[in-house]
Amino acid sequence: MESNKTDHNANLFVEELRDCAKMLVDKLQSSDYETASELITTLTQKRDNHIYQSVGRLTRGLHNAIVNFNVEGDLTSDPASIEKSEIKDASDRLNYVISLTEQAADKTMDKVEASAPIAMGLGQESRSLREEWHRLKRREMTPDEFRQLYYRMDDFLDQMGTGADQLNQNLQEIILEQGYQDLTGQVLKKVIGLISDVESELVNLVRIAGQVEEITGLIDDADNFIDANATPEKKVVGEGEGPQVNADKRDDVVSNQDDVDDLLSSLGF
């Protein structure tokens, strides 16, 4: 809508210029210098008006873009504060994802580390009792030893009960802890939404700026403006990229360990 209107205005301006220019040539050829002089004034006025309108549109576009950027902080203060903006909020959300995932991993591992000795203790005691049990079956046991085994068996059954309960509880808590996936997923989706919004507003802003620069003659082609900003991604040698989100859609990226092994073996590894 805004774009069509802008184009329409620009076309109108160019048409007016052409008409004026034609009339100016006519008047000059017929030596009507007074009208010609007036036409030149009109031309300048039209050009100035057009620039004013364009600057007005840019200002409005800039304002809208900034509002839509969700940077609603106090920009009049010095330095500008964006404490309450959605961008700041997004950084906070992402930090939240880091801390939540870290907590979940830590808690899960705590539970596993707490469970391992229980399982190991029960296993050891049951193996030792089995040996004693076999001795009993082979009738190699004195009545005194049997009395000891009797009490050990009682203790073991108790331990088994509480141990199994504890293990069950730990396993349940580990499962529950995986709820971070849901929580972080939601937060990440919100941040992704914000980024897409900001991206489209940024494109809008670049387009508006390009149009005005074209009109005011600072640059002759709006596309150049955009292209000039689309410099290829700079990559510092040795710097990592982090996890590949779309590994299966890229040719220069391996998608699993098998691919890594294939590549390395092709290099003689």
């Binding site: 040795g238 982090g242 996890p243 220069d252 391996v254 390395l264 290099l267």
Partner: peptide, 22 residues
């Protein structure tokens, strides 16, 4: 590492890595 670009794996191999797990 999460670094999974072929160029990176080759770079690591050339630098003398003994194994690479993604």
């Amino acid at each position: 590492t999460a670094e999974a670009k072929r160029d990176q794996i080759i770079e690591a191999a050339q630098a003398g890595v003994n194994g690479y797990v993604v």
